[in-house]
Design a protein around this nucleic acid. Structure first.
Lengths: 192, 192, 192, 192
DNA sequence: AATGAATGAGGGTTCATTCAT
DNA sequence: GATGAATGAACCCTCATTCAT
């Protein structure tokens, strides 16, 4: 008879919020941002349409929150990478991470790739994503230089494009693309 | 006041059709497929909205025809590539083509990349695009083998991903991405 | 931890109810009936949305109760008016009341004026308001006749319209409308 | 087989636009701005909902255009008023106009009165309406002074409030309010 | 007595498509 | 061949109301 406590409410809220985020990510990955309707997300999440707006300001905000939570995850991964001993180990860790990431975060990755062409529609996002990318690059260059690669700047950008392309093709072709073989090849080339 | 001849009509038709295709490509590249309205295409092309449906069955069909015309162009390029003497020349021709293509067919390329994630919405397209890609790959592997690369199959797929990624990044970052440097680097690596 | 007594409960209830009524009146005056949300009222009153439905059947019912409480107030004013000695005193009392009322019950008056155009949406209200008005008129006519005005019926209706209009303009123009001057003018004309 | 000429289209457009304006005014007067839905307007006008947005940018814009067309009408009336010979004639013309206007433009007048409380929601409108009102007042004062009234400024404002109130009551009470009697009384008082 | 998560009908608006001319 | 007025389904979003706690 007493109203719920704040803690109880927090649990309920977080549960609903996560159900919606999961459903949205699932649909965005398959049908794209415009192809996914808020009604569809509600249906997929098993909640009423209106509830979504208790947790998200707008459809854009759902994307925003999905990406933000992905970014905060990536910070952990990055810390782990930097904890590796040698430059070779760091590179290997990176490649292995890409392998796992592409396989297990397929939907999230697809969303990111689709967004790449329209970041300007998500004002809060673009700065954060760009900042992330530009802060990563020098570290990546450093690691590559440490493995003995000459002209590491150029090579880093090329390798970065290569991994981008691998992600791209894996998403388009799925099992028809030999992801494992490609990652192994990169390890072979860069972590001798 | 005599009626137009069939030939005259054909010229007029082709002219209008091309104006619409050009306008549509321009808008698709900037605003995406969903962000572009048929009215907008008509306005950009300087024709009436209704006319579009004289030449195209639907909005999807416009994309279809844009892509088909791009594919038929690529056949000519491919013929020219195969006319090169040595494997090195062929590789160099390919890289130079990528360089030019990315710079000059920016809009078309952007459209293709955006479509990559949603080919299933364009039923007639998916088979053709996939067929094109799979028919290219063995020839590409052959050329690479001729340049002396070992394990050409694997390398071809990796290089293909790399070029894909270069295109990707060039489209996202535009002038901030050192396209020329990347292409030069590839030429250096593969056409010594 | 003993349960509250009935009397204590009654006090609490009346306090909450009044907080809600006050908040609602404040918002209705600024944003109108449709522009005011029940959530907004709850926020302004500092109570939970759900509590409102413990005291009011619906959003309409809030308006209903605001107006009813205003009417019961006006009964007191009317008794005081009738207690004045001369007809001139009664008229003066009336005009001074209008002056004070317009200044101090701005929000309530604004609500009433806004409702005037849509009484049929508040079924319980229309009869009461109309009854009030029609019961007042003969008394008003009597007072006016007592001041020596000829054709008091006509004059009463015109004066009634004038005061209505003064209220109207004061609400639209606020300080830009010379309320005091207008009231003084009426006193001058009718209470020589 | 030829497309419609521009003139033909103009006729069609103006016809549809007017049907929508008429339907909207009808509904606004009965149900208010918020109580009237765009779907309802479309139904009342006998057109598809979407057509409304060929002619009006938004629901607000419908109101805007209704009011603007009313204002341009009022300019003609005003010119006619000023063409009267004597001040008495001008006053009589004014009162007669109010009589006719209240009877025949009932819906438009009701809309105006409802808007008075929320002009700030119609940004383009407020300046125009206020400018209209403030430009009228001095002329009105002048006429009143010419009829021999002392302290014409004060009297003009009071009379203005009176007419406002008459409009108000006529709209609320309709036939139960003796409009003709009131207007006759004003003529008697001011145009002896 | 009080809370706020949840519901779903209905709002304004956009846009691909049709069709009379 | 060409026009653009007209259609209506579907979109995102708001909000009065309910109800388990």
């Amino acid at each position: 008879m007493s109203p719920r406590t704040q803690a109880q409410n927090e649990v309920i809220r977080e549960h609903s919020r996560q159900k919606i985020l999961d459903a949205a990510l699932r649909l965005f990955a398959v049908k794209g941002f415009d192809g996914t309707s808020v009604s569809g997300i509600a249906r997929e999440a098993g909640v009423a349409k209106g509830l979504i707006y208790n947790y998200f300001k707008s459809k854009e905000d759902i994307v925003h929150q999905i990406v933000m939570s992905g970014i905060s995850e990536s910070d952990h991964v990055f810390a782990e990478l930097m904890a590796q001993e040698t430059a070779q180990d760091k590179m290997r860790f990176l490649f292995e991470f890409v392998r796992t990431y592409l396989k297990e975060r397929y939907e999230y990755n697809k969303l990111l790739h689709m967004l790449a062409f329209r970041l300007e529609e998500f004002p809060g996002l673009i700065d954060i994503v760009v900042a992330k990318q530009t802060s990563m690059m020098p570290l990546f260059v450093g690691i590559l230089a440490d493995t003995g690669v000459e002209n590491a700047e150029r090579e880093a950008k090329l390798l970065s494009a290569t991994m981008d392309g691998i992600g791209n093709q894996y998403m388009s072709l799925k099992e028809k693309f030999p992801l494992d073989e490609m990652i192994d090849l990169l390890i072979e080339k860069y972590c001798h």
